[in-house]
């Protein structure tokens, strides 16, 4: 609990880090901050072309089906694989000055999260232009699922970033793990394809991201409120991983300065 109070005192540092990261992200590029919006649009263009001409899918407006789930996934995967290096990359600070080390993963995940929020403006625009109806009641659930995903990503990033300090290969292993994880999460397909395979289905629901992605898709694609079970599973997983993240990070951070 002490750490939460301390982190609150250090909020300016977190804000500073997030701002610096967002500002610095597209620095020196001609279009600058516009890339935050252009990038997802171009991605969408590619998916539309590929899935409407080359790899035709049965799902109606497949590019949208994919897009509303892919953006949250990208946030999640960059957080855990990119965020794994967030302590190491600040080693000069960690070895020289005191600050609550939790600031580093929190800043990293928050900055990726803000980036996703901005991208979601594009998602909204596309969903509306594509003529899908947005259900206002369902939309009320959107912030909830976003926050749940944020804490899930934060918890896991805290674990990966702390472990990477002791074991540098983890950063590279994680990029493979997140790739595999992406295929094990119903992003490019619907969970219904697992109907009739109860064992596989069980495994899928252990994956915390399954509930999160289903909830996103319910809200943005199907225009319906997510099931309470989906939502509470996701929230429960988010809570468990956040607590785990803080505990593991808190334990491992004590020897950061020596290991770096």
């Amino acid at each position: 609990m002490n750490i939460l109070k301390e982190l609150y005192n250090y909020r300016q540092m977190i804000i500073g880090f997030v701002k610096r990261d967002l500002k610095g992200r597209y620095k020196a590029s001609v279009l600058g901050f516009m890339w935050t919006f252009i990038n997802p649009l171009l991605q969408l263009l590619v998916y539309t072309l590929v899935f409407s001409t080359i790899m035709r899918q049965d799902i109606e407006q497949y590019y949208l089906f994919l897009f509303v789930a892919l953006i949250p996934w990208i946030f999640f995967s960059t957080s855990i694989s990119g965020g794994a290096g967030c302590v190491i990359s600040q080693s000069s600070m960690v070895t020289k000055i005191y600050f609550p080390r939790e600031v580093l993963p929190i800043s990293y995940v928050t900055s990726a999260f803000v980036n996703m929020l901005l991208t979601y403006i594009v998602v909204f625009a596309v969903v509306i232009i594509a003529g899908r109806t947005l259900n206002p009641v369902a939309l009320l659930y959107l912030p909830i699922i976003m926050i749940v995903e944020y804490f899930l990503a934060l918890g896991i990033t805290m674990i990966t970033s702390a472990m990477t300090v002791y074991f540098r290969d983890l950063e590279y292993i994680l990029s493979i793990i997140t790739m595999a994880w992406q295929f094990l999460t119903p992003i490019m397909y619907d969970v219904s394809i697992l109907n009739g395979k109860p064992h596989l289905q069980k495994i899928f629901y252990i994956n915390p991201m399954t509930s999160v992605i289903i909830a996103y898709r319910d809200i943005m694609y199907y225009g319906r409120a997510p099931k309470l079970l989906t939502l509470s599973t996701a929230a429960g997983m988010g809570l468990i991983f956040t607590i785990l993240g803080f505990l593991i990070f808190g334990k491992l951070k004590r020897r950061f300065a020596e290991e770096l």
């Binding site: 250090y10 300016q12 600070m93 600050f99």
Partner: peptide
């Protein structure tokens, strides 16, 4: 940024 590292708002 530097003062924020010392925990100032």
């Amino acid at each position: 940024t530097n003062a924020a590292i010392f925990g100032l708002t």
